[in-house]
Lab assay of single mutants.
Amino acid sequence: RDEDEKEKIKEALKRGNEDKAKEIAKRANVSPEEYERLRKEAE
């Protein structure tokens, strides 16, 4: 379940949809550090 959320965040970031990614991260309680890591992976 947690991994699904992280995949959704990465997908949103790949599409350049940072607002959606942040919204998912907030809902999934993803830490800022984890969010940054996902953002780097998505580049």
Rank of each mutant, 00 (worst) to 15 (best):
R1A: 14
R1T: 15
R1Y: 14
D2G: 12
D2Y: 15
D2E: 14
E3I: 08
E3H: 12
E3Q: 13
E3P: 11
E3A: 10
E3T: 11
D4Q: 12
D4A: 11
D4Y: 12
D4V: 11
E5N: 10
E5F: 15
E5Q: 12
K6T: 09
K6A: 09
K6Y: 15
K6C: 04
E7Y: 12
E7Q: 14
E7A: 13
E7L: 13
E7F: 13
E7I: 13
K8F: 06
K8H: 08
I9H: 01
I9M: 03
I9Y: 01
K10T: 04
K10F: 06
K10D: 01
K10Q: 03
K10V: 08
E11R: 08
E11V: 07
E11Q: 11
E11T: 08
E11F: 05
E11N: 10
A12P: 00
A12W: 14
A12C: 04
L13G: 00
L13H: 02
L13F: 13
L13T: 01
L13M: 08
L13Y: 03
L13P: 00
K14G: 04
K14N: 05
K14R: 15
K14T: 05
R15Y: 12
R15P: 01
R15W: 12
R15Q: 15
R15I: 11
G16S: 03
G16T: 02
G16H: 05
G16A: 03
G16N: 05
G16M: 03
G16E: 03
G16I: 01
N17P: 02
N17A: 09
E18C: 08
E18A: 09
D19M: 12
D19H: 12
D19V: 12
D19Q: 14
D19F: 10
D19K: 14
K20L: 15
K20S: 09
A21R: 00
A21H: 00
A21V: 01
A21M: 01
K22N: 05
K22M: 12
K22D: 04
K22Q: 12
K22F: 07
K22E: 07
K22H: 07
K22C: 05
E23C: 05
E23L: 07
E23S: 06
E23G: 04
I24K: 01
I24M: 07
I24F: 05
I24W: 04
A25S: 04
A25R: 02
A25F: 02
A25L: 02
A25W: 00
K26E: 13
K26M: 12
K26G: 07
K26R: 11
K26T: 10
K26A: 11
K26V: 10
R27K: 14
R27V: 09
R27L: 15
R27F: 10
R27D: 09
A28H: 13
A28P: 02
A28E: 07
N29M: 05
N29F: 04
N29H: 09
N29G: 15
V30L: 13
V30I: 15
V30W: 04
V30C: 04
V30A: 02
V30S: 01
V30D: 00
S31D: 08
S31R: 05
S31Q: 06
P32R: 10
P32V: 11
P32F: 11
P32Q: 11
E33I: 07
E33H: 07
E33R: 05
E33L: 08
E34S: 03
E34N: 03
Y35A: 01
Y35H: 01
Y35D: 01
Y35T: 01
E36G: 03
E36D: 10
E36A: 07
E36V: 04
E36S: 04
E36Q: 06
E36M: 05
E36P: 00
E36L: 06
E36C: 04
R37S: 09
R37P: 01
R37W: 08
R37M: 10
R37V: 09
R37A: 11
L38R: 00
L38V: 03
L38P: 00
L38W: 05
L38A: 02
L38D: 00
L38S: 00
R39K: 14
R39W: 07
R39T: 06
R39C: 05
K40N: 10
K40V: 12
K40P: 02
K40E: 13
K40L: 15
K40W: 14
K40R: 14
K40A: 14
K40G: 09
E41Y: 03
E41R: 04
E41M: 07
E41F: 03
E41P: 02
A42E: 03
A42V: 15
A42P: 01
A42Q: 05
E43M: 15
E43L: 15
E43R: 09
